[in-house]
Design a protein around this nucleic acid. Structure first.
Lengths: 357, 357
DNA sequence: GAGCCGGACTTTAACGTTAATACCTGATCG
DNA sequence: CGATCAGGTATTAACGTTAAAGTCCGGCTC
């Protein structure tokens, strides 16, 4: 903390600027800038002296000035969505935390966008406005769909961006990170088949949902491989009540289901309710699996077998992807497909549990 | 879209700047700036012409330049926390959305902070670093506690901030917004008392938690007013298992509880599990209430009676509070105490439900 | 009619940074 | 031995905005 013999400038108070560091180190402001951005342009001795002064004064470059000069704010924009209270999953909450952690680790900050509609013209306008006001370095989109207008807009503006959710229109030039719903549902199906189930139904979402179709395909593939029928199939909205009704239908079938693989925890919880209404024991009599590992899945009795998305990896990879794009990396945009993890709980095990005394 | 007769400057492409607007409107850049920031300094005719040009060109002020010049970034910082997967509540997710909506409506943007620890020295360092890099206008803190170092730090730096959570050390100079946990728990207690329950227990958190103590006080007050005993009391960590065990203890008491008012949905879900293990019907035989209206509360069977925090109002009021501070409003800092809403579901009603056939 | 006032607008300078350019010094070359 | 070069550092100018100071001019006072 004692003043170094080689630096004679004053120790400034409050905000520390480049020229204050320069003055104290006895060099020009540009040299300090070079020390931080182009260290190879300086003589080693000078570099060392400058860096020591930077550390001594605790200098941090002013982002506004940098942004103004470089047209780069070190900001990554992300739009937060309202959390639907009827949805069990904390996925977006965990995702945001993971994304932010990786962004900060990479020297960026997350700035949040807002738009009432979803995927709407209003959302695109919000992005446009943000870009007018501040040179956001990149965008991260979640829950993309086929023919996503936001993708088209961002691309037309030439802004780097990556999406959580693959390109559904076979667009290879998009950078994306996704979780393999097909493999996940297949793993769940194989798991219940391994417990001896032969009548395995699937409760999923309507065909408009690309994610839903992927998950359904995993169930169909696993059944196909084992020669199991795939006649027990429902495509319903993602609510507990719809899951409950679909379960009742499949349990009323001539050859009823003994296992139900669901596209979401919400639907699976509906199935658990249906079983409860019929006095059937989950796991022991009818196996049930969900998707997303919501908090509820761990809290219900018996626990709900489900698939956990490796959400911290998703965040890390997305930041990696936009970093590459920002750096103008000439390689192909990244496509990362991650595997979900099957979390086995009581709802799919014959276990010793006796829920209905 | 056709060029106006009074303005003869060129229509620029790409980024629109003050001086481009100025050129087209035939005035100086400063006049355009004044049109937006000090309209009364201009002659009405000039003002109108400038504003028309601003609209025509879709000009938006550059935030980096503004920040550099004004030392104000129109950014509000908030630190996101990891969502604990064993906690049922979506509170923070909803809060962030609400806060961001209000921030954007007020012309601000939310920028996210990250720190591994919690309330730690590292968190304070993260705030300090952010402030060095960019002139964040204000901070919003969540989940404050007694002798919160973050409060002391932000105050010592002279940065405006408001907290979600009241000042626990009786510090009137703090701007805060909070939800009245005492009134909420009191309402829940009165509700079960109105169903005819006389042995009402409370499962809450250890006394270190100021929030927990508030909620406990509400239960105690409601019981006191009705001459009910308050001997059935537990102070445990906020986990399902702790709730379950506490419930068993209170049901094993010489004069057992017939109603259990809990400090959280997580604890209440533990109680529901305990009831299930004993073959007791929630609502009909033992009333249960939680706190926070987690998604799980609506999804379990029977539904869990709980208290919903008016989280959108919390967000709005917090932004309001920091706006006042930023504007240097001379009035006392705001203290806003909001009332939670009792959401009555099957777990506290004798209703016709027959959960255990 | 000289002096003054004040409204309407413009010019200047500055916020902190960095690309581009200019400068200086000593070494190498023809 | 003067010219050329290159490494190291300094100067200039610009990013877009706005506070402060300056200019201009018509109207008013005495």
């Amino acid at each position: 903390m004692s003043p170094q013999p080689t630096s004679r400038g004053p120790v400034p108070h409050g905000h520390v600027t480049l020229s204050q560091v320069a003055q104290r180190a006895g060099v020009s402001a540009q040299s300090v800038s070079n020390a931080l951005n182009n260290p190879d342009r300086l003589a080693p001795a000078t570099l060392e002296r400058i860096l020591a002064t930077v550390a001594e004064l605790g200098y941090e470059p002013n982002l506004s000035a940098r942004a103004l000069r470089n047209r780069s704010s070190h900001l990554i924009a992300f739009k937060v969505r309202p959390s639907r209270p009827d949805k069990a999953s904390l996925l977006m909450d965990e995702f945001l935390y993971a994304l932010n952690r990786s962004a900060v680790a990479a020297g960026y900050h997350l700035i949040l966008c807002h738009a009432e509609g979803d995927g709407s013209a209003e959302e695109i306008k919000a992005y446009r406005n943000l870009l007018k006001k501040t040179p956001v370095d990149a965008f991260v989109l979640a829950e993309t769909h086929r023919n996503d207008d936001r993708v088209a807009a961002l691309r037309s503006w030439g802004v780097p961006f990556a999406t959580f959710g693959r390109s559904w229109d076979g667009d290879d030039s998009l950078a994306w990170v996704d979780v393999d719903g097909r493999a996940g549902t297949r793993a769940a199906t194989e798991h219940v088949a391994a417990q001896g189930h032969h009548r395995i139904g699937h409760i999923g979402w309507p065909a408009e949902s690309e994610i839903g179709e992927e998950r359904r395909a995993g169930w169909r593939a696993a059944c196909g491989e084992r020669g199991l029928e795939t006649d027990l199939e429902a495509a319903v909205p993602d609510t507990l009540e719809d899951g409950r009704q679909a379960a009742h239908r499949m349990l009323d079938a001539p050859r009823p289901a003994t296992a139900l693989v669901c596209a979401s925890d919400t639907l699976a919880l509906g199935v658990l309710r249906a079983l409860h209404e019929r006095g059937l024991r989950p796991g022991a009599e009818v196996a049930v699996t969900g998707f997303d590992d919501s908090p509820t899945a761990a809290l219900v009795s018996p626990g709900l077998t489900t698939l956990r998305q490796p959400i911290d990896v998703v965040g890390r990879q997305l930041i990696q992807a936009v970093e590459n794009l920002i750096a103008g990396d000439p390689r192909e945009p990244q496509h990362v497909l991650l595997q979900p993890e099957l979390i086995v709980r009581g709802s799919s095990l014959p276990g010793p549990r006796t829920p209905t005394p």
